[in-house]
């Protein structure tokens, strides 16, 4: 099956990332399609999370991290002097491995982004909260508890809240770094179906250590090994007729 032609949302060409002496990503060239759910699989330490964080420049926070090569969002380079990192991160949201709601009320968590980017104020914030909590399936459960601490809800609700927080600024891209790894299997399935729903409206890039999850939810799958992007293509192809021997070994459980 040939790759379906599609609009490129994110693109890298000859991307190399170093942490000090460690060469974390090696010459990665990739195209991430718009409004597609792309899963990144591979063994631990292969550079999946590093690749993810290239796109919102969260790697900038790591001392000694160097990024070389072309990285583009909508054809615009991300690693150029003068790039507005705050604006970039508004456009490219992120959901972390461990749910990290702020120690504020549920309401304040959801409206955090709109507040700091001055997108809404006063009563509009209430509407934002309802819309975003509704989108992640939390509104009915939490609408009477908006003033409660966000630390009092279940881990699954926390992760949904973090997703609601991320979409409250209406980003184009959502980066998700193993969003289900700290959740139980039932919560995992429910978050997965939420991700499927969201992929109709957002470009989603999700790191997962769980190959079944990648197979279940993603349109495209990328396989990283030792910092190299071995293969990136439609999920069905990658799992059933991989081009590379190493991919085949990995998805059939040959190693890893």
């Amino acid at each position: 099956m040939a790759d379906v032609p599609r609009a490129a949302k994110l693109r890298t060409d000859g991307l190399n990332v170093h942490y000090g002496d460690f060469h974390a990503l090696k010459n990665v060239t990739a195209v991430i399609g718009e409004r597609r759910l792309t899963a990144l699989i591979g063994p631990s330490g292969c550079g999946k999370s590093t690749f993810l964080r290239v796109f919102n420049r969260m790697n900038d926070r790591v001392a000694g991290c160097r990024v070389e090569g072309i990285v583009e969002l909508d054809g615009q380079p991300l690693y150029r002097r003068g790039v507005d990192i705050e604006a970039l991160r508004r456009q490219v949201g992120m959901v972390f491995q461990r749910p990290n709601p702020f120690p504020l009320s549920i309401f304040e968590n959801v409206v955090f982004g709109p507040r700091i980017h001055a997108l809404a104020a006063g009563a509009e914030l209430e509407a934002v909260a309802e819309r975003c909590l509704g989108a992640v399936g939390l509104w009915d459960d939490l609408k009477d508890r908006l003033d409660d601490s966000a630390l009092t809800i279940t881990p699954e609700q926390m992760q949904r809240l973090c997703i609601a927080r991320a979409i409250a600024v209406e980003p184009d891209v959502l980066l998700m770094d193993e969003p289900c790894s700290s959740l139980d299997p039932i919560a995992t399935l429910r978050i997965e179906s939420l991700m499927r729903e969201l992929s109709h409206r957002y470009t989603i890039l999700v790191v997962t250590h769980n190959m079944q999850q990648a197979a279940r939810i993603s349109d495209d799958t990328g396989f990283l090994l030792l910092g190299e992007l071995v293969e990136l293509g439609p999920t069905a192809t990658v799992f059933t007729r991989p081009r590379d021997r190493r991919t085949e070994d990995y998805v059939t459980g040959g190693f890893g």
Binding site: E86, F96, F102, I116, R165
Partner: peptide, 21 residues
């Protein structure tokens, strides 16, 4: 650190992160 990461990843500036989170 996850609070700071979360806030910065939302596009908050360093000062907004300090003040609000």
């Amino acid at each position: 650190m996850s609070y700071r990461d979360g806030s910065l990843a939302m596009g908050a500036t360093e000062w907004q992160t300090v003040r609000r989170v």
